[in-house]
Amino acid sequence: MLPSSARLGASGTPGAEAGAAPRGSGLSLLWSELRVLFGRRRTWALLLALAAIPVLVAVAVRISSTVPPGRGPAFLDRITQNGLFVAFTAMLVSVPLFLPLTVGVVAGDTIAGEANMGTLRYLLVAPTGRVRLLLVKYAGALAFCLAAPVTVGLAGAAIGAALFPVGPVTLLSGDVIEAPEAALRILLIAAYLSVSLAGLSAIGLFLSTLTVVPVGAMAATVVVSVVSQVLDQLPQLEWLHPWLFSHYWLGFGDLLRQPVLWDSFASNALLQAGYVAVFGALAYGRFVTKDVLS
């Protein structure tokens, strides 16, 4: 029933008039975005899929009695002696495809997903400024970039500790660190990977403003990441390599030295910041003038 009662909201909210000065609830939408993103089954499915990678690695190593040294991904042969290496292995394995894939899904969905559901028009007439919405959407994608490598790392450490002995870790520089510090290094690498994915997220955000078909933007983002990595493999294009956003993706080995070498971290961060600036600007240019017709 729709009782013809007094004006809705007119009661009890005298200070709630929209004419009042902004009440600093700018974070409201960000909070809501994070809740929607991480409350969604799809996001959990993506994170679970990522968590399955170290589990697969660990179980495979556990049931096959011996791993011949020097074969398979780096660190693989060290797992039986130290479970923490499951985390390092899994993070290494997930860099080329699995992390870009999941990030592509989330970043490609940002604007196109809202447009596809039709909720974009309601967010805009709420009103949410377009710039604000773009920023919040990108922040949400970044939050996922943070969560994804952490999930791989933590799941790896957990399953490794469950199936194998855990002890001091020998670093690439030959130094030995204790297990708690090694756990810290796992988080450090996760942070490195998060930064690595920031550029790809910005590309995904831009692609997402071009279409109302989220799957299209997702696929395009993943394709872009694959293309970038392929180009990075071609020696003929060596001049291009430092400019590819995937160039430093596997460069986190320096974080496994004592003392930590921050060079690649810094170069990576700078490169990613460049991509964020360029594709953020493109997304802005496209989205602010876009007719929302879906």
């Binding site: 009890g12 929209a18 004419g19 609830s25 409201s28 809501s32 709420a126």
Partner: peptide
């Protein structure tokens, strides 16, 4: 969610306004 998107909407009264609507 849509109310949170409105920058000026008071979060304090959100719950009441939503259930009233």
């Amino acid at each position: 969610r849509l109310d949170a998107a409105t920058r000026h909407a008071a979060p304090a009264t959100r719950k009441a306004r939503v259930s009233e609507a």
